[in-house]
């Protein structure tokens, strides 16, 4: 009984007045993500073009020995992998800490702790990253795991905040409807709150990842490795080719990670929103 296909189906005229023609299923696809697939296609193309340009330059440039060694395939690959593992490991730890914490802080019993926890997380992000790295290094020593700790502290906030904002943004009437029909608190959390908060939470995770790719360049200062080594060496030895290569690669990696995040957001977005 709708105005959608009046001639094919019998339509009670009474309904025609109360039901302003709703969208047909299927027409919403274009509206689900602003920009839609076009943005998702352009971004990896840009990354590919950038990477190709770098590789072409690398193959044809005349380089000094130092440059050639630093920009050797094996070295580059190691630095990139190291950079990526710094990012991925710290991101995984951030998600494991921040999401459950964010969920816990939206439960009625713990809600009053919210300002305190958000305050602490804010300090982590507000502190200058380089200061945080060096301070932690003097305390925990140099190396991979110290870098991870610093990165986790630095990027916990966006995930934590987006988890909480996402859950708090769920219409409280839906929670009430769920409880009112006999769903347990846990069932409402997993079947209503988390799916609806999903897009905001994923956006937080993507923000954190991109932040991590950029911040992980600082790892070189506390012996954490990564693509930051190239940049740092480039600055110290005034070798612009190294400096620019490092910067370009970090930027490409960040763009690629951001794109992956967007794809996940697009795919995981609950239908019907």
């Amino acid at each position: 009984m709708t105005t959608a296909t009046p001639s094919a189906r019998g339509v009670a005229a009474g309904d025609a007045r109360d039901e302003a023609a709703p969208a047909q299923p299927g027409t919403e696809a274009a509206g689900t993500a602003p920009g839609g697939w076009r943005a998702l296609v352009v971004q990896p193309l840009l990354v590919a073009v950038g990477l190709l340009a770098f590789l072409l330059w690398r193959a044809n440039a005349t380089l000094t020995d130092t440059e050639a060694r630093q920009l050797g395939t094996a070295t580059l690959w190691d630095s990139a992998l190291r950079h990526l593992s710094l990012t991925v490991v710290s991101a995984a730890i951030v998600l494991l800490i921040s999401i459950p914490l964010g969920i816990a802080l939206t439960r009625p019993a713990l809600r009053r702790l919210t300002p305190a926890v958000i305050g602490v997380a804010n300090v982590g992000q507000a502190a200058p990253a380089i200061g945080l790295f060096v301070l932690l290094a003097t305390w925990l020593g140099f190396g991979f795991w110290t870098t991870i700790v610093a990165l986790v502290v630095y990027s916990a906030l966006p995930v934590l905040r987006n988890t909480m904002v996402g859950i708090q943004g769920v219409d409280p009437r839906l929670v009430e409807a769920g409880r009112g029909m006999g769903m347990s608190g846990t069932a409402v959390l997993f079947r209503v709150e988390l799916p609806l908060a999903g897009p905001v939470m994923l956006a937080g995770a993507r923000t954190a990842l991109v932040l991590l790719v950029g911040t992980a360049t600082l790892a070189t200062f506390i012996n954490g490795g990564g693509l930051g080594v190239l940049i740092n060496t480039g600055i110290t030895l005034s070798l612009n080719s190294l400096l620019i290569s490092g910067a370009v690669l970090v930027a490409l990696l960040a763009l690629a990670v951001d794109w992956l995040g967007r794809v996940v957001e697009h795919v995981a977005r609950p239908k019907g929103l």
Partner: peptide, 17 residues
């Protein structure tokens, strides 16, 4: 208890997803 009691709220309160 609530599974035995129907509950209707304003605007239906349908789960949008």
């Amino acid at each position: 208890l609530r599974r035995r009691i129907g509950y209707v709220i304003q605007a239906g309160g349908l789960f949008p997803h």
